[in-house]
Design a protein around this nucleic acid. Structure first.
Lengths: 156, 156
DNA sequence: GGTGAAAGCGAGGACCA
DNA sequence: TGGTCCTCGCTTTCACC
């Protein structure tokens, strides 16, 4: 699946991870190309699924979310059906900003934002615990985001 | 800190979280404004720190990273100095794509990408365990990203 | 793979209601 | 606040090397 990327493609990916609003002209200059081939490369990276989209990165703090929590969820059953229902339900809950089905003691790891600890408590009790087939949850709060910007390495 | 956002600002934020490359003209139409006031609003959202940046979202899979792991790290000490050194060191390691200082049994939660399980094992042994003042690590692997795109809710 | 050029459109600002 | 108009530069797509 991984398409062969040359040095130029990697430089473009790194640049666009840093700033998705760079113009093709700026990108082209940064990799010493003219705009046309640069534009074509970006299109190929988009169509091949390497670039899955472009996103404005928002500050949870500035939006009034003082609390970021990581919630580990243990399920009562491990049937396909239970997992499918659970996942479907998660997608509808905007406070859950990320979710992985994971190995280990717990089955899911959720990242949740809330206004403050009190509203997180309410959310945990009334929304998370009420999710189908949840056996146990364990919450861990983020004191500080040490790497706030998720950047996938392209060099290597 | 949270600036007062009206319905239009929220719509702009939602649109830009969905697609950071929307033109101002497209944005303006989606919120029934003309380009100038729309452009001004976006600038204000950027300057106020609500929009912290624009990022191309890349697919770890397509870049050859078959493994995403969540690594919980317990430290030997909880001194400021130890934490500071540890955090500084983390920032230099590109495979660690996210990191939070957290409450609970463990002190840090890292998100790590690797080519495959074997290379993750090597990374855990040679890089993670070798970090300063690490007492214990616990790794959990992602079988599947249920919510691949982190979107901070703006309605509320 | 790369260049250069043309047409159309958007960004960004000055100014008014 | 929002709207109009204007200009410059960029995007996008040619044909071609």
């Amino acid at each position: 699946m991984p398409t062969a990327l040359d040095r130029t493609d990697k430089a473009l990916l790194a640049a666009l991870q840093g700033n998705a609003r760079l113009t093709v002209a700026e990108l082209a200059e940064s990799v010493s190309l003219t705009t046309s081939p640069c534009w074509r490369r970006v299109k190929i990276l988009e169509e091949s699924g390497i670039i899955t989209g472009y996103q404005a990165v928002l500050s949870p703090k500035e939006l009034g979310y003082g609390v970021t929590a990581f919630v580990s969820v243990m399920m009562e059953s491990h049937s396909q059906e239970v997992a499918r229902k659970f996942e479907q339900r998660l997608l509808e809950i905007p406070e859950i900003i990320a979710c992985h089905n994971v190995s280990g003691r717990y089955d899911f790891l959720l990242e949740v934002v809330a206004k403050d600890l009190e509203s997180f408590g309410e959310f945990a009790r009334e929304v998370l615990q009420a999710l189908p087939a949840v056996k146990e949850i364990y919450s861990s709060f983020s004191y500080k985001s040490v790497k706030p910007r998720r950047v996938v390495p392209v060099i290597g």
